[in-house]
């Protein structure tokens, strides 16, 4: 840089630093909207509670529904006794199936078996299925 007669280096350095600052601010101004644009949608209002009609869950059968954006399963093991579980297998995230004959849940991916209460019966799942609180309201089942 010494063979530069025109353009004093301190001045150039000062301008470059200033430009860097302005550039950083501008980058922020453009990056922030893009990040917000790409951010996952905020959870829908009234989330946390889901209503399912009782008639959809006959005794001994299962009903799949979406709970807070994730698949869940609703069971009626004995008349009036409803159980809500996540339907996402704790092993690798496949969706469990209700095997009516055995009254248990089976993960089709690697054969993990869960009881109707979500307890691991056999197979690779490391932990039980999460259970959601259930309450009854007229002919509706309230989950969450």
């Amino acid at each position: 840089m010494n063979d530069h007669p025109v353009g004093a280096p301190p001045r150039r350095k000062f301008l470059a630093v200033l430009l860097g600052l302005v550039g950083a601010a501008l980058t922020g101004f453009f990056a922030w909207p893009v990040l917000r644009f790409l951010a996952p949608a905020e959870s829908v209002q009234g989330a946390g509670k889901v209503q399912v009609a009782k008639s959809l869950v006959p005794v001994g059968e299962a009903h799949l529904f979406s709970f807070n954006g994730r698949p869940a399963v609703l069971l009626q093991k004995k008349p009036g006794e409803f159980i809500a579980l996540t339907a996402v297998c704790t092993h690798l995230g496949c969706i469990v199936k209700w095997v009516q004959d055995d009254q248990e849940l089976l993960c089709p991916c690697h054969g993990g078996r869960f009881s109707a209460e979500g307890v691991v019966l056999s197979g690779p799942p490391p932990s039980p299925l999460e259970r959601y609180p259930v309450s009854l309201q007229d002919d509706q089942i309230l989950i969450g």
Partner: peptide, 27 residues
């Protein structure tokens, strides 16, 4: 308005920076 001002400032800074190089071949 802030972004517009910043962009104009950046433009002016670029031009000022360019002047520090003069017309010479840079080393």
């Amino acid at each position: 308005a802030v972004v517009v001002v910043l962009l104009i400032a950046a433009g002016i800074l670029f031009l000022l920076l360019r002047r520090t190089y003069g017309e010479n071949k840079s080393p």
